[in-house]
């Protein structure tokens, strides 16, 4: 259920902010930002951070020649510094109907809280944050901006988003990978119940476009433990046929399949240098983000 305007900020987890807000979270890959910031840029420029010495090539600006080195060695060397820029972070929310599942809160609601919290943290450290609601009909896209008002826009759009999409999100992810021109951080919030091959394709597509890809793999505990005490008719949230089965008989096989799927997703992420964070809906937001934050504050 969408939150009222006054309750938008409930998407921001207070405990997570208190725990993770102190230290800036940095991107793993160089970013192309418009302004100076905390993140490594792919461009070299004036900065306090020394990068390397490089031999001068005719045609380059002679102003960048390190005269002290020339005086000592009679060789033309350029002294390069790392440029630092801001981060453009895009939150991509899977709105497929499968995200509705979960108790006590759905995967979709949990994903919204992760987005709200991370958006707040990034905006606070001066990075640009955008949002894409991956819904085939009611898809919304907010371009990445650094303004403080952006948070309200994002939270409002999150409150309006509904998980009832029928078609797979993969196509939409491909489109987004294509549409975002410059390097950015793409955070995908999904249960990734799609075919691992298609997930692999879209991640590789994003990586080819030099984006940093982060997967928040959200599942419900019931889905990963599959504990039922009696025969159950399972109704497909995405409109497929229902299945009547004795859960205790298929549990073993189900868990094997699920484990294999998760393993494949993890493998894809490792291969394509993506970050993969698995979380279940009954965990706390600060716990879910703890590892994400830890890896990015250690840079």
């Amino acid at each position: 259920m969408p939150l009222q305007e006054s309750n938008f900020f409930e998407y921001i987890d207070q405990k997570a902010i208190a725990r993770l807000g102190g230290i800036p979270m940095l991107g793993h890959f160089p970013m192309e930002g418009s302004v100076s910031g905390h993140h490594r840029s792919n461009h070299k420029g004036s900065s306090v951070e020394f990068a390397e010495y490089r031999e001068y090539t005719p045609g380059e600006d002679p102003k960048r020649i390190d005269w002290r080195v020339l005086a000592r060695t009679d060789k033309y060397f350029l002294k390069e510094f790392e440029a630092e820029t801001n981060l453009r972070s895009y939150h991509l929310l899977d709105c497929s109907a499968s995200m509705k599942f979960g108790k006590p809160s759905s995967k979709f609601a949990f994903a919204k809280r992760l987005i709200g919290t991370l958006s707040y943290l990034y905006l606070q450290q001066g990075d640009a944050v955008g949002l894409s609601v991956l819904h085939p009909e009611k898809g919304e896209e907010i371009p990445a901006r650094r303004s403080p008002a952006q948070l309200q826009d994002i939270l409002f759009n999150l409150s309006q988003a509904q998980a009832n999409g029928k078609s797979p999100v993969i196509d939409q992810l491909h489109q987004i990978a294509e549409s975002i021109k410059s390097r950015a951080q793409l955070l995908i919030y999904s249960d990734f119940l799609e075919d691992p091959k298609s997930v692999s394709n879209v991640i590789h597509h994003m990586r080819e476009r030099k984006h940093e890809v982060v997967l928040f793999h959200i599942m419900d505990r019931q889905e990963v433990e599959f504990v039922f005490d009696r025969p159950t008719r399972f109704i497909d949230l995405e409109g497929g046929p229902s299945i009547l089965t004795e859960t205790n008989i298929i549990r073993d096989d189900y868990l094997k399949q699920m484990g294999k799927h998760l393993e494949e997703i993890r493998k894809i992420c490792t291969e394509s240098q993506c970050s993969h964070y698995f979380t279940v809906t009954d965990s706390r937001v600060d716990d879910a983000l703890r590892e994400f934050s830890f890896e990015r504050t250690q840079a």
Partner: peptide, 23 residues
């Protein structure tokens, strides 16, 4: 027991179908 089963909305149908086939 089979007759008075419970109904459960489910997301990960793909694995259920596979598990049932492979049970």
């Amino acid at each position: 027991n089979l007759l008075r089963h419970r109904r459960e909305s489910w997301a990960a149908m793909r694995f259920l179908v596979e598990a049932k086939e492979r049970s």
